[in-house]
Design a protein around this nucleic acid. Structure first.
Lengths: 160, 160
DNA sequence: CTTGTTAAAATCGTGCACGATTCAATCGTG
DNA sequence: CACGATTGAATCGTGCACGATTTTAACAAG
């Protein structure tokens, strides 16, 4: 533990790629979250969806997708699994039968609240970083993400 | 286009989560990479694997996994797809028949070199950020990633 | 009312990521 | 040499992410 005798992950071309750091950090987050969320019987994307629903319950699949940056082809099965677990309900909107509104059940709200009560603190500790550093990193990454999303649209509108 | 008239992705709890910024940035990177890599017939993880191989050809599956932070259950099928595409070869080591050595073919090397010739520049442009800012972000993220990986190991050795 | 169009969600096929397990080769010790 | 333990890779089942397509509902002329 005092030394990591694996000199293999330094100095390679991959380490110069920001995209790889993002990719690897995503994998690492997933692995830290997994044992924490297993106790609630949910996965990491499901956790994100539940947190999004907590903020604005009864949103449509599209609206949820807008927050999570996912389409219905990914969200529909995920939400159905949450429904099968009794954490959310899915109901067609009476005014517009095309849209499906997703809402937390009482059990679902309990799970999110309990998870939010302990998971973020555990994650914070796992990062070993100061809250203000994490916040700064969060701001940079959020702006990177929206640049990548808008940039793709811009090059479409641009000239191709 | 000058403005993004969707007020839906600001101010939510998710936006306060660093893990979500990492997750969303990863999705966004994937979407920018996809059309760029489609022309070479490879996926984003396959691209990362080829770049890793370019640095140290003939590495074992485990060594490659050490660089990419992946296990054989993920790498084996990925490498077999690269082999099916004629980009790498897989050979059992003569000294130790347990290990499989993966090497770029000439076609594979050509693909990586051509991809590296144009893709990184396109990605840089898509981020719309200055190289030094990206570099700083890369350093922060790399340290976050290794903290998350070591933190898990530390809590293993720590009190359990 | 009918027909063409748009919009939201769902469905399908492929590839990734991972926990758990299996299989074969190597090694360690007797 | 033998045999239990370890190691490296592969296999299997589940869930995610995505492109492409389909289905159903709403809407807009005519």
């Amino acid at each position: 533990m005092t030394d990591t005798p694996r000199p293999a992950d330094q100095g390679d071309a991959l380490d110069q790629f920001l995209c790889f750091s993002v990719y690897a950090a995503g994998l690492a987050f997933n692995r830290v979250y997994k044992p924490l969320l297993d106790r609630f019987g949910i996965t990491y994307p499901q956790y994100l969806a539940l947190v999004a629903l907590r903020d604005s319950n009864g949103r449509t699949v599209s609206e949820l997708g807008g927050k999570l940056h996912l389409e219905s082809n990914t969200l529909t099965p995920l939400i159905k699994r949450l429904e099968a677990g009794g954490l959310v309900t899915r109901n067609r909107d009476k005014q517009d039968e095309r849209v499906v509104r997703v809402a937390l059940t009482d059990a679902g709200r309990t799970v999110v609240d309990e998870a939010l009560g302990c998971v973020p603190a555990a994650i914070l500790e796992a990062t070993g970083m100061q809250p203000q550093d994490l916040k700064a990193l969060n701001v940079s990454l959020a702006s990177l993400g929206s640049a990548l999303r808008n940039g793709a649209a811009a090059s479409d509108a641009d000239g191709r």
